[in-house]
């Protein structure tokens, strides 16, 4: 139920005075409400739960998984 998945913003628009976006989840595109985020641009990754973006995500977090790499090196 608390499932939230990352997607990339392809379009931003207004609907009934709410900022909305068209978000691409690996090919599946859905409307997402951006009301709870600021400073969001096309191309940003967002974490989405029941049609609401809860957090802007950093590209680096996804591409490099840095923290896990650091843990490994610390452990070893």
């Amino acid at each position: 139920m608390c499932l939230a998945i990352p997607g990339i913003i392809e379009e931003i628009y207004m609907q009934d005075d709410i900022t909305m976006a068209k978000v691409n989840f690996q090919g599946i595109k859905r409307s997402v409400c951006l009301a709870y985020l600021t400073d969001i641009n096309i191309g940003d990754y967002v974490l989405v739960h029941v049609g609401f973006a809860l957090k802007k995500l950093s590209h680096i977090d996804f591409i490099n998984a840095n923290k896990l790499i650091n843990v490994d090196s610390e452990l070893n």
């Binding site: 690996q26 896990l68 843990v71």
Partner: peptide, 19 residues
């Protein structure tokens, strides 16, 4: 999901499990 693949890495998983 492609962007989440790094968080499913088998080698890192084995390393964490060993530790």
């Amino acid at each position: 999901m492609e962007v989440l693949r790094p968080f499913r890495d088998e080698i890192k998983a084995k390393s964490l499990i060993d530790n």
